[in-house]
Simulated assay, not measured.
Amino acid sequence: MGSAQRVPDRAVSDTDSVKKAVGDPDEVLGPIPTQEDIRHETDSFKKNVQDDLDESSAMAAPEMPRV
């Protein structure tokens, strides 16, 4: 122990050196969605959930026919 005290500090990597070593972030991670893309997707999920809730409520308590 105590070896960490004897290891010299490494230089902080810059963006270009990371890209050179790992690759372009869009190629490695895929395209990163914007806030608008995420909002559009979550709104779509909310609509689908609401549609499912409405459908299940209609099945559980169908309207009685009026005579």
Rank of each mutant, 00 (worst) to 15 (best):
V7D: 03
G2I: 12
Q50T: 12
R6C: 04
M59A: 14
L29V: 03
M59S: 06
R66S: 07
D54K: 10
D54L: 07
P31S: 14
V7R: 13
A4Y: 10
K20L: 14
P31C: 03
A58Q: 08
P62H: 04
Q5W: 11
S56R: 14
V18H: 02
I32P: 00
D52I: 06
D26P: 00
V7Q: 06
V22E: 05
K46M: 12
S57L: 11
S3C: 09
D54F: 08
V18A: 10
V7A: 07
T15H: 05
R6Y: 11
D26F: 04
A58M: 05
T34R: 01
A60I: 01
R39Q: 13
G30S: 09
D9I: 04
S13C: 10
V22K: 06
V18L: 15
D51R: 10
V22F: 05
V12L: 10
G2R: 01
A60E: 09
T15Q: 01
V49N: 02
A21Y: 02
D43V: 00
R66K: 13
L53G: 03
D51M: 05
A4R: 06
G23Y: 04
E36T: 14
V28M: 02
T34D: 07
I32R: 14
T15L: 03
V67C: 01
V18P: 04
D43E: 13
M1K: 01
S17I: 06
D24N: 12
V12S: 08
Q35L: 12
T15P: 02
D37P: 00
F45I: 14
V49Q: 01
E63G: 05
K20E: 12
L53V: 11
P33Q: 07
I38F: 07
E27T: 15
G2Y: 03
P65S: 02
Q5N: 13
A61V: 11
D37L: 01
D24A: 08
N48P: 00
A4E: 08
S44T: 07
V28S: 05
D52T: 06
V18F: 11
K47L: 12
K47V: 13
V22C: 06
G30I: 02
Q5K: 12
V7E: 08
N48C: 00
E55K: 14
G30T: 04
V49M: 08
L29D: 08
M64S: 09
I32L: 15
R39P: 01
K46D: 14
D51G: 02
E36F: 04
I32Q: 13
L53M: 15
H40W: 00
G23S: 07
K46T: 06
A58S: 14
V7S: 06
A61L: 09
D14A: 04
G23I: 07
M1Q: 06
S17E: 13
K47E: 10
H40K: 15
E27G: 12
V7M: 12
D14G: 07
P33F: 04
R10N: 03
